[in-house]
Amino acid sequence: MFEARLLQGSLLKKVMEALKELLNEAAWDCSDAGIQLQAMDNSHVSLVSLNLRAEGFDKYRCDRNLSMGMNLGSMSKILKCASNEDIITIKAQDNADTVTFVFESPDQDKVSDYEMKLMNLDQEHLGIPETDYACTIRLPSSEFARICRDLSQFGESMVISCTKEGVRFSATGDIGTGNIKLAQSAKVDKEEEAVVIEMQEPVSLTFACRYLNSFTKATSLSKSVQLSMSPEVPLVVEYKIEDIGHVRYYLAPKIED
């Protein structure tokens, strides 16, 4: 028996928004530690890793490990039936071929349940090596979304260059060039509004704007986002999900021919 009840059901709706543009289907792996999902997009350019810890749920029960393959388009349709204020419970029997989503209104006067067919997905989790990144940049998530949107107008690719002075995002295309420089914040009232750079060595890498824009669908999950870069390895874009976990996106860089 698997059962996970989330008081703040809107979080699951936001998680869905953060996944569905990149992934058509994915396995939700449930254990007594929580729920994990790891999947690559169809072109194997990016990888999404989601972790929702058991302690973050109001109620959590997982008698035996199970992997639920879900069509994310279908799951998204179902979660759209939940109100933002609803409490969401995900339930499945052991070895079941369906999963049930239960939505309760806050005052319990409306309860809906939706049963969805599971899929057989033969997915394996890849090990992600521990990496000491040459640069990590924390910035407001809304700022990062804005930068990705603005620079996408100029070209398909964006260069992210990090030095101790700050971080520069640049894109070049037919209409010209756009450059956005962010300096490390000298003084901030709120932690989540800060730009914080930790740098061992300067790094400059090129990434596809299309994927970066997809990652920013997670913006509503967190006020800040962390970018981690090292030469020639995938960029990590991490959004923490309050009190419960994180979603991390890995994006392979573009290289000069």
């Binding site: 690559m40 072109s43 194997h44 350019v45 990016s46 990888l47 394996e124 989790h125 890849l126 090990g127 992600i128 090596p129 690719s157 090129t206 596809a208 390895v233 995938p234 890995y250 392979a252 860089p253 573009k254 290289i255 000069e256 021919d257």
Partner: peptide, 14 residues
């Protein structure tokens, strides 16, 4: 022109 690489460096579980 820069060409897109694929995700590498992640290992298959043993």
């Amino acid at each position: 022109m820069a060409s897109q690489t694929k995700i590498t460096g992640f290992y298959r579980p043993t």
